[in-house]
């Protein structure tokens, strides 16, 4: 392996999570990195969500795209992946890529240069983003892994998906802490939403019914400095 020092420290052996035999790092910023494949997965960027709301009269600050890209830039700089998979809902709506400010478009294109980039189609953005490089796919199989937007009803081992925006909640010493999380049971994983304006849905909500083997469910909750692995039995709904 030929990791630079900074990358090596980011990938400590103990932090690796197993999914269908592959090993991955759940990064506290909400991305998944497979060191053996040099593959970075990110889900639900929801770029241009701000302007999508503005179109309908809610003039929320137009800085979400910039904030999301800045964060994406920082993980790409840290891991220097060979392959990037954006797991769908990369844009909040079909017109998002067109509305994107020129400076943001340039920033995104610079990140995409010199690496393979896959746009997995999502329900918000079923078509290829306008005028952007990268391959648009319905789903993507690499090794024993399958990347898709929505988790499939019929269980596929090795499936990495997004769409549901998982978060988890614990109560400790009478106080409630809720965070975005990676939800995984050893066989499949649902990734947290990455976008600056994306909300989240508790992994115990009925929308997740039947997706996980509850006895091995772990929520990898995003902390300010690290990830916290919390077993399913500790989690609270709501």
């Amino acid at each position: 392996m030929n990791f630079s020092l900074s990358r090596a420290t980011l990938v400590a052996e103990a932090d690796l999570v197993g999914i269908a035999g592959e090993r991955a790092v759940c990064d506290r910023r909400g991305v998944l990195y497979f060191p053996d494949l040099r593959l970075l997965a990110v889900s639900d960027l929801h770029l241009e969500k701000g302007s999508s709301f503005a179109r309908r009269g809610a003039l929320i600050p137009p800085y979400d795209t910039g904030a999301t890209l800045l964060q994406l830039q920082s993980v790409i700089t840290d891991y220097q992946p060979r392959i990037v998979v954006s797991l769908g809902d990369s844009f909040h709506d079909g017109g998002g890529a067109e509305r994107m400010h020129q400076s943001f478009r340039e920033q995104l294109e610079a990140m995409m240069a010199a690496r393979d980039w896959f746009w997995v189609a999502g329900n918000h953005d079923p078509d290829a983003p306008a005028d952007l490089p990268g391959d648009t796919v319905k789903e993507l199989a690499i090794g024993s892994l399958v990347f898709r937007h929505e988790p499939s009803k019929i269980r596929i081992e090795g499936e990495i998906s997004g769409h549901l925006h998982p978060c988890a909640r614990i109560v400790q010493r009478g106080r409630s802490v809720r965070r975005r999380c990676f939800a995984a049971d050893g066989g499949r994983m649902i990734m947290p939403a990455f976008g600056a304006y994306t909300g989240s849905l508790n992994v115990l909500d009925r929308a997740y019914a039947g997706l996980f083997r509850l006895e091995t469910l772990v929520a990898y909750m995003l902390g300010a400095e690290r990830i916290f692995a919390i077993s399913g039995s500790m989690l609270r709904p709501g």
């Binding site: 969500k49 709301f53 809610a58 929320i60 600050p61 800085y63 979400d64 910039g66 904030a67 918000h124 549901l164 925006h165 600056a196 304006y197 994306t198 909300g199 989240s200 849905l201």
Partner: peptide, 29 residues
């Protein structure tokens, strides 16, 4: 942002943007 009305289903995902997220983004930009 709009008021949340009683009876409206709580669905934090795509429908609304939470005020906390807007605050964080606006404050840094």
């Amino acid at each position: 942002i709009e008021k949340r009305f009683p009876g409206q289903e709580k669905s934090g995902r795509q429908v609304t943007v939470s005020a906390d997220l807007i605050y964080d983004v606006l404050r840094s930009h």
